[in-house]
């Protein structure tokens, strides 16, 4: 081949890779455009603040928004301490080349790969049937109190699912804290835990927040794990107890899309629900991306 044909062939194939990248961007664009175009009209204050009416043909989705928020809040409270401390162990406390740290890492990687529906089965088998029944027996509840689907079990199931997200981002944040800060603190006589609490964790805070936000965004969108651990299609009342069932934006989307008796009538409401769910997860992701770019820039500047 002459150099010219080689160059031409290369250019053609290079543009093919560019086409692939373009298709990916276009896919996102089409999805967003379609959802915004069809859903934006329906997102009004009434829609956001009222419960559903007329068998889902009217009204709003406030209980679903509230349920999603309460669910992810409980999940965050459960997952953050465990996730952050695991990352602290891996990066600050575990001896180098320690076997147990290697096991923890392998477990976290594999946990991240477990299908979400299997988490749902785990939530049912472990939290509801094992822990819940055990609690009912221990606390002397005659009828089922804890051994039934509820918001606590659903949020704990999601907490297990989002654990790897928190661990990975926290570890990245810890890595970005310069080693000098630690040695300086230790040299001044601070103990390891004082160094951790007053120097390392404050330094890593933005990255830890990123992890929290990413976990919330992931947890808010997952439907498969909560199918049998607590989500309900229609509940006019908000969840009041830890064992109450709850409405959920994602689950609401699924049921309205697949089991509506009149697809055409529910379509506008469905689109608006999807738009709210998308806005929620995107806003969270955007916050995470912004915090992370900032910390990365700062970390790059300090080396």
């Amino acid at each position: 081949m002459t150099p010219n044909t080689r160059r031409a062939v290369g250019l053609a194939l290079t543009s093919l890779t560019g086409l692939a990248a373009f298709i990916i961007i276009a896919m996102l664009g089409i999805i967003l455009f379609n959802v915004v175009e069809n859903g934006a009209g329906g997102v009004t204050w009434t829609f956001l603040s009222k419960p559903p009416e007329d068998g889902m043909m009217g009204g709003g989705i406030f209980p679903a928004i509230f349920g999603t928020a309460a669910l992810t809040l409980l999940m965050t409270v459960a997952v953050m301490p465990v996730g952050v401390l695991t990352a602290v162990y891996l990066h600050e406390y575990a001896p180098p080349n320690s076997l147990s740290a290697r096991f923890v890492r392998v477990a976290v990687v594999n946990l991240a790969g477990v299908p979400s529906i299997v988490f749902g089965l785990f939530g049912l088998g472990f939290f509801i049937l094992f822990v819940g029944q055990g609690m009912d027996r221990a606390l002397g509840h005659e009828e089922m109190y804890w051994a039934q689907p509820g918001i606590l079990w659903a949020s704990l199931t999601l907490a297990v699912l989002t654990l790897p997200v928190v661990i990975v981002s926290t570890e990245e944040a810890l890595r970005a804290v310069p080693m000098d800060h630690r040695t300086a603190s230790l040299a001044l006589g601070a103990t390891q835990s004082q160094t951790l609490g007053r120097v390392v964790l404050p330094g890593a805070l933005p990255g830890i927040l990123t992890g929290a936000v990413l976990a919330i965004s992931r947890g808010a969108g997952e439907v498969a794990p909560i199918l049998f651990t607590g989500a309900a299609y229609f509940l006019p009342d908000l969840p009041t107890h830890l064992n109450s069932q709850f409405m959920h934006l994602g689950y609401h989307t699924y049921v309205m899309a697949t089991q509506s008796p009149d697809v055409e009538a529910t379509r506008p409401l469905l689109y608006s629900t999807v738009l709210v769910l998308l806005l929620l997860t995107f806003a969270l992701n955007l916050v995470a991306v912004i915090i992370r770019t900032r910390t990365r820039r700062k970390a790059a500047g300090s080396h």
Partner: peptide, 15 residues
């Protein structure tokens, strides 16, 4: 863009 695409809940993709 890729991160946003990864952030779309699977129920929305199904929808």
């Amino acid at each position: 863009v890729i991160e946003l695409l990864a952030g779309i809940p699977s129920v929305v993709l199904g929808f």
